[in-house]
Amino acid sequence: MLELDAVHTYYGASHILQGVSLTVAEGEVLGVLGRNGMGKTTLVHTVAGLLRPRRGRIRFLGRDITGASAERISRAGMGLVPQGHRVFPSLSVKENLKVAVRRARSGGRARGTVADGVPRFPVLGERWGLPAGVLSGGQQQMLALGRALVGNARLVLLDEPTEGLDPQTVARVGDVVDELRRRGTSAVLVEQKVDFALRRVDRVVVIGRGSVVHESADPAGLRADTATLRDLLAVGGTVAA
């Protein structure tokens, strides 16, 4: 479904992604782990079309999307939940969901509806007419995830969706990842919470200094392998949830 072949991305003169190659299969949830500053968000932005790679190839659903605009990639069926509870603060909850539905093409799937974002997050229904900017951080993240659900994309990029959230909201985010999997939606889950990610993904890659330094098709095994985790991610002892 998604293939990256030796992708290089720069911020000005800074060489951030240094030949990342990875694949995501149909219906697969791929975990992307790595320490801060290793290029995880750059990877997400490059795949989503918000950054243009300087070298390498990206293919999505069999089509070359290298250097394509973000809107084209979105319409091809890729959804993005950006880092940091990014919503449209002066649009209402309902309007935020509408914006996500309106242009969604979902790569051939039926479009979702605004109401699709509500059952998973009842709190959104309660805040239906409020500007998203007045919601709490956790509620904004629920809205951002709701936007991903109503878009009904073929592949969703989740950039640190649990960042700064309380445990209860983190559990909700986990529910959404599980639901995406049940729907057969592919996902790329970029996470700092190692245990959270390893419990939910089918496969995992670790990014270090702009390239894939470890790949595992056995997340449960990696979860138990504290020595390797310590080497790769500086996570010691029992991995935190």
């Binding site: 979105s74 950006p82 914006v99 996500a100 242009r103 969604a104 936007r147």
Partner: peptide
Amino acid sequence: SPLGMSVVGTRESESRMSAAGYR
């Protein structure tokens, strides 16, 4: 209208609107 709403969305974040499929 949805069009006016999208313009407000563009004011708030062009990149987010692009990622949602808008121009």
